[in-house]
Amino acid sequence: MRRAIKYLFICLCLAPLLFGVIYSLGYSLGLAGLLSDGFTWDYWIGLINSGNLMRSTIYTIGLGACSLIIAVMAALVVSWKSGRYGVDHRSSISKSKAEVLILLPLLFAPVTAAFCWYQILSPGGFIARASFHLGLIHETSEFPRLVNDDLGIGIVICHVFLILPVFSYLFTATAHKHRLHRLYLQSNTLGASSWYFFKKVYTPMLLQKNMRVLWLYLIFLLGTYEVPLLLGGSRSQTFSVFIADKLTRFNLGDIPSGYCMAIWYTVLITVMTALYLRWQKSILW
């Protein structure tokens, strides 16, 4: 019985992925699906030559990395502030209220966050209206493009919004666990300024202790769908938007390239996850 359940778990984890990969690989090589007429590399070559593979890879990784870097930087500052290193306790804002407020984005589904940020950042949105009333713009066309743009500014903002509380909490907890406050006082007695401590001890230590979690978040960011779907531009598409677009619109000609991209994405994520697991406990090798 126990053995049967163990195999059920293995199947549950691997079977969907394996079946998905087998069919996708078959389709991308002309061996499965409505268009199948024998083995061919044509779809792969077509995807590479169109530049979509490279564009999506760079775009997705770039957006993920940018979001991660900005969120990490902001979270470091937030955790530093909430740890109150070198701050007069009486002068700061009510700590508990601010700390609860910072967790607000945890309540948001990506689709909800994407919708709200669209309404904030779009040319007809809240910021554009505020700019109009402040006399910074006179019509919507003057407002800089922050959503559906090619740089993915809106996507990055929304991603930062979604992951900032997680990292803030993580860094604060790590700093607390490793008693960085004591180190800070020690560093002060040795003559170091707060900024020096932040730069040379606080940041490197927290990044080093949480590198695996950051890596895991990068993996998740490479797969986000709702945010780039609502806030992304039309020229470049992230992996998930490209794949879903090609595979769910039932344009027969597009389907193989969708499956090629799905295989490429799965390989990339599998390698990154395997690296994470190896990193985590050296359990795979």
């Binding site: 549950l12 691997l14 992925l17 794949i243 769910t248 996850t273």
Partner: peptide
């Protein structure tokens, strides 16, 4: 063994929309 549990990470790491797209045929 941690190796067995490590399998649990894979379906979780792949974007649900990609997993769904690859499985829609089945």
């Amino acid at each position: 063994t941690p190796r067995l549990l490590a399998l649990g990470y894979f379906p979780y790491a792949i974007a649900p929309v990609v997993l769904g797209s690859m499985l829609q045929y089945y």
